[in-house]
Amino acid sequence: MNAFRLAGDITHLISILVLLLKIYATKSCSGISLKTQELYAVVFLARYLDLFTDFISVYNSVMKVVFILSSVAIVWCMRRHRAVKRSYDKELDTFRHYYLVGACFVFALLVHEKFTFQEVFWAFSIYLEAVAIIPQLVLLQRSGNVDNLTGQYVFFLGAYRALYILNWIYRYFTEAKFSRWIACISGLVQTALYADFFYYYFLSWKNNAKLNLPA
């Protein structure tokens, strides 16, 4: 465990806490893409299949359970909770995310570290996580103005993978046998997808103005 990775995991946890805060405090999920939340639930369920087979550390197991439970809880809440689901932008959140799932799964069947059930699902979850934010970014573009908590949620979500890239660089130089090229390349694609959001987020922070993305 190095500082970059710990900072990345904490930033990831913060993004989830900010989203939970927004939904429970405002009893609203306006501006949040249900499709992105569903994709994240699939990402964690597909990636943490080794939860009961490979014990790495208490920290590792606890964080896996937290990520799985929180992502499923958010999807459940946006689908079932009466007040919350009324505020869901159903007509704006129309990205066909099933195509993303299919494409990532086919790609994982082609490109993986080992052709085993667990490794293929791990690669699938890495690819899917890289593109899971797309429905959310499309929704933000369509809804124009972004409320503070939603903006902070997306910002922390993007920042966590950027910190992981620093972690992979650090591990590459400090560990002889470290090669995580699938995660590294996907992580770069994932962070690049946030580039324009980060740009407008920085501008809004610098000018102390409301964050609004050009349509």
Binding site: D50, D54, I56, N60, N167
Partner: peptide
Amino acid sequence: ITSPSTKDEL
């Protein structure tokens, strides 16, 4: 000990 292929990252 964890084999190198074990995913130790979240």
